[in-house]
Nucleic acid binder design. Structure first.
Length: 472
RNA sequence: GUCCCCAUCGUCUAGUGGCCUAGGACACUGGCCUUUCACGCCGGUAACCGGGGUUCGACUCCCCGUGGGGACGCCA
């Protein structure tokens, strides 16, 4: 309770703007966000755009949009790393002045050749120190390398994985500043995290091997070393790193496929983190219960089926007004008239228990919006026949006389009609189903009739009868 | 190749030395409900990688092996 300001937690999410927000990145951002919200800290967004060739504004935009969609709001930023080059250069100079870094003129080609040779000979392909003690000065194509300690051990006290130690001799004299004057990732990330006073660095565990080098740089610069938490990777069904081969990996793609952000967040958080046997979490619960200690240490396989299940859960349980908002755009995209909100809301409510995604809902509910029924050939061949035409005629004739035009009233009407006509409800229901929806699969036919309303029902039945009389 | 990490049902996981003849969830599956399809309800199949220790007692601790992942860029 004392020194609150000093203990305030500051985290960051630092994507590089070279593509869309990836599922894995989204989970990392989510863990950072939850950890920060739980502790009342500050969540910083920083765009790592020091790679001038690959960074694009479109990617930055896309990443911001995806985070917003997921509800991962940030408190500071976005900061752009490339805007800090002057500071990065000062820091590099400081290291050179102190003898902690040196200029190197080995060409990329040479380095590549040496790397290949080392690998072929079974050695670790680290920089061989050619320029380390040459005392070179800056030149047009020189780079700056870190003078890495050759003895000693560097240990990471990881919040998720526990202590991890590395022998410094295994580490490399990594490049700090490129020939183009821009800092490399491992240097820029240290300077920026330190300057932004990041207290907890939560990131993917593919960064574990970079961490000892970064710790050494923090120390060389005289900065305080933050706490680290490395979250395990997300794998595809073949246990290989998740990639496009395994299906959609972009967060926005899931939005387009009709997933709810709540579902994706809930799925992602349970991939690696757990809280007893609980599967469904509200955001409030997550903020309350989340902890890095409960994050597992092993990589997790991405399972689209479970995501689908969660999506269905959120579709079936969200409030009706919310559902209307969610579903409408997908029908708009199909070119349907959605001006009657009441009608759209009823259609969506009617379809929610049988839709795993909003796209599925929009597809299976198209009949609600199409005047012309799009008959499934097989279904029409089986039910839109002279044999069943009488059922349709009867319904069309009697429908205006149905006083209790509700689900129950219609069910009673159809049952008595079946009895009257000496058949089973099943045959009348299926025939009606094909006439009204074009398919043999649909929501309960009485519900469909209620939502469609008498006029539409009669029009569709007339059309079906015409079709039968025309001989299919 | 070297270094680092990991290892419970097909998948996500619970489990922190005895409560485990290992629990939940997804998927799969049998049944019920039923105007089709879903939903819902009831039930089922399915796992502690292998070998050594430590201990009265190991899924839980230690070691080795095996398997998987990651890193080894003037990418991040």
């Amino acid at each position: 309770m004392i020194k609150m300001t000093h203990e305030k937690i500051r985290t960051r999410f630092a994507p590089s703007p070279t593509g869309f927000l990836h599922i894995g990145g989204a989970r990392t951002a989510l863990f950072n966000w939850l950890y920060t919200r739980k502790s009342g800290g500050t969540f910083v967004l920083r765009i790592e755009d020091t790679d001038q060739l690959r960074s694009t504004d479109e990617s930055t935009r896309a990443i911001l949009d995806a985070m917003t969609w997921l509800g991962l709001n940030w408190d500071e930023g976005p900061y752009f790393q490339a805007e800090q080059v002057a500071i990065h250069r000062d820091m590099v100079q400081k290291l050179i002045d102190e003898g902690k870094a040196y200029y190197c003129t080995c060409s990329p080609e040479e380095l590549n050749a040496r790397r290949k040779k080392a690998l072929a000979e079974g050695r670790k392909p680290k920089y061989d120190g050619t320029c380390r003690d040459k005392g070179l000065r800056r030149s047009p194509d020189s780079v700056v390398r870190f003078r890495c300690p050759e003895v000693g051990v560097t240990v990471i006290h990881d919040l998720i994985k526990g202590d991890i130690s590395f022998k410094n001799e295994e580490l490399d004299d990594l490049i700090l500043e490129r020939a183009d004057g821009y800092p490399t990732y491992n240097f820029a990330v240290v300077v920026d995290d330190a300057r932004m006073e990041i207290t907890h660095v939560i990131r993917g565990d593919d960064h574990v091997n970079n961490t000892p080098k970064q710790i050494l740089i923090y120390e060389a610069l005289g900065y305080e070393v933050p706490l680290f938490g490395h979250v395990p990777m997300i794998l595809g069904s073949d246990k290989a790193r998740l990639s496009k081969r395994h299906g959609a990996t972009s967060v926005i793609a899931y939005q387009e496929m009709g997933y709810l952000p709540e579902a994706l967040v809930n799925y992602l958080v349970r991939l690696g983190w757990s809280h007893g046997d609980q599967e469904i979490f509200t955001i409030e619960e997550l903020i309350r219960e989340f902890s890095l200690e409960a994050v597992g240490k092993s990589a997790a396989v991405f399972n689209p089926e479970k995501l689908l299940w969660l999506n269905q859960h959120y579709i079936t349980t969200c409030p009706e007004e919310k559902l209307l908002e969610l579903a409408t755009p997908f029908w708009v995209k199909k070119g349907f008239d959605v001006s009657d909100r009441q009608y759209v809301a009823q259609a969506a409510a009617n379809l929610r228990t049988r839709s795993k995604t909003l796209v599925e809902m929009a597809d299976s509910g198209s009949f609600y919006f199409r005047e012309e029924v799009d008959y499934d050939p097989e279904a029409a061949a089986k039910f839109l026949t002279p044999e069943y035409a009488g059922h349709l005629e009867a319904v069309a004739e009697r429908i205006s006389g149905i006083a209790d035009y509700t689900k129950d009233g219609l069910e009673a009407f159809l049952r008595s009609l079946a009895e009257e006509r000496g058949t089973k409800l099943k045959w009348i229901a299926q025939t009606l189903r094909v006439a009204l929806t074009g398919r043999t699969v649909s929501p309960g036919i009485d519900e469909v009739m209620v939502i469609l309303g008498k006029e539409r029902v009669v029009r569709k039945i007339r059309r079906a009868i015409d079709r039968i009389q025309a001989g299919g």
